[in-house]
Amino acid sequence: MSHDPNHSHGDHGHGEHSHGEHGHDHHEVPSDMALRTKALESLLVEKGLVDPAALDEIVDTYENKVGPRNGARVVARAWSDPAYREWLLRDGTAAIADMGFIHRQTEHMVVVENTPEVHNMVVCTLCSCYPWGVLGLPPVWYKSSPYRSRAVADPRGVLKEFGVELPPGKEIRVWDSTAEMRYLVLPERPAGTEGMREEELADLVSRDSMVGVALVNKP
């Protein structure tokens, strides 16, 4: 598949203000979005429909409290504790609830394990479903039209763009999140990490490895 780098592309674009721009045009959102959002918030506050302090709490939750560190702790525990790993793979919802990470968009969890034979990768082609409680809010690329359109038809090509090349004999299993089930990839534990403590292991686990677009490498 070829890509024309001169084309504007879907979710990053911002209408007439981004013509000719490419790449990181999400950094250049017209200030009218800020103004429009502010106007909407003022209206809803004036009408008593929302409490602005509740909005502050929501923003603080995702900026500071709920993020991929949660998922990394789940993975590190599964790598360290075979009984927990078995539970996590059998009943992801209960095993994740045990860590206190059940959350909006993390109500029903399936954890899929990468092995020498199978690599798992998660997408939501229809919108942007993502397990917020263990990974936080989804990154822009996950929500973008290019990822949503291509992950199911050309997973190897997409992985290559993420710098991941898998042997042709390995199965790639793409999970399209079409319902309220949310998927977390349990990456393969890298060799050379024997004896590492759970906290140290969690430091190795990236968000992308738990979506299945990266591998975990030894330190």
Partner: peptide, 27 residues
């Protein structure tokens, strides 16, 4: 679908790129 462009991966992406995005989520 094809033709929607390359996947663009931003290193160390912030949770919100602009304050209004957080307000939009909150609203």
């Amino acid at each position: 679908m094809e033709g929607l462009g390359p996947v663009e991966h931003e290193k160390n992406e912030p949770v919100f790129h602009h304050a209004w995005e957080g307000r939009a989520l909150g609203l």
